[in-house]
Design a protein around this nucleic acid. Sequence first.
RNA 1: GGAGGGGUUCCCGAGUGGCCAAAGGGAUCAGACUGUAAAUCUGACGCGAAAGCUUCGGUGGUUCGAAUCCACCCCCCUCCA
Length: 433
Amino acid sequence: MSKALIEDLRERGLVFQIAGEERFIDWLEEKPRTLYCGFDPTADSLHIGSLVPLLMLRRFQDAGHKPIALVGGATGLIGDPSFKAQERQLNTPDVVAGWVDKLKAQVSRFISFDESPSSAIVVNNLDWTANIDVLTFLRDIGKHFSVNAMIHKESVKQRIEREGSGISFTEFAYSILQSLDFAELYKGYECGLQIGGSDQWGNITGGIDLTRRLHGAQVFGLTMPLITKADGTKFGKTESGTIWLDPAKTSPYAFYQFWLGTADADVYKFLRYFTFLSPAEIADIEVADKAAEGRPQAQRILAEQVTALVHGEVGLVAAQRITDALFSGDIADLSSDDLAQLALDGLPVTQIYRGDLPPAFTQLLSDSGAVASGKQAKDALSRNAVFVNGSALGLEDNASPAVWFPKEQALHDVYYLVKVGKKKHHLFVVSGV
RNA sequence: GGAGGGGUUCCCGAGUGGCCAAAGGGAUCAGACUGUAAAUCUGACGCGAAAGCUUCGGUGGUUCGAAUCCACCCCCCUCCA
């Protein structure tokens, strides 16, 4: 069972390093084990960077093990310096506490809570760190850490060695807190494995050392590779910012579109990372795509799988409905209800009275957020890249509201669907005379 | 506390009195080609429809004119104590 799990993870390329590798497989095979992964509240939502570890917890749970999702109510107050170029801004305790609650709900959706032995647990490390006093911390915990070893960790090396940066004691001590988490979870839940991104290696091995010193126990660590894109740009960011897991911050439609836009060079790898499709199924998709002309199927499958995982079937259907309407359907066929639904499903929408329309279309577009600035709108207009309900506008129309939104062309009297460029859509609801 | 080095437009990074809204690279946006790809080419890239307005850590000052010079202050880094 567990051998098959590790084999599957290796095939997917999800195993970067294992701490304690010689004994790890046997240990995992022996009986159902407890493992954990930490998620620090650095915002009011997780983003897709946390998806791989979340799914990893699920993969272990599916193989019969018990996952613990740790939300870093304490570590989130400090800030993990690992591979960060700069010291981070501290957030206030009540803000972090609010984020902890949101993250708890979010991580809970990816692992299952039944009454079985492998039922998941969510914990907050503030529970065991909040009341440690300084002297106890320094004497009982700090004594186990060698500063000599800590400053040589790759994760903080840059901050220590490179001119122009630096690291506060606060952040430097972060890895001690995370190490303590592992030891505490071992003590409280017999948790014997911590998983995390490859940047967490130093923090994980710190926890392994501490657990051995405090409890004389051998525990393990497994890291996942950093997710990279073939073009070298950072994974998980787009022009409109981070891709969040919270549908209020990134709509299911935008989320679906993000995955649909995955580069060919990355898409099969991402299928292995982000879905539960077997490596064999994924290989079949790749073969079929190679044989076929035109657009590969992999992006669509990836988008469907991941959107369903994160936003459920309902979210996926909504995302696809908008996608169909905007990219392949005929917008004139959309019913009034459909249009209203698109707005609810995440299509950006602006309501405005006809009399309040600004003097320039570029201004309307930038005010509504459809474009980043009037300059961009102007550029698009001059290249005939702006469409209202399917007909192109030019730069010469910029100052004539009657041309942008002619009454007789309104869909259901009030709707104007504006397209800027190939992919950006914005719905205007224009009322009044 | 002492000595030295820095803070430039989203990022990196040039720029030491006018030719600077500020080189170059990256990122981003739009067009062409396409598959809502990639690569490539073209254009845009502080804000503004425009006239024009606002930037180079902050505040004052010198000057016809300052990102560039002066004073004070804030922040970061290195070494020393």
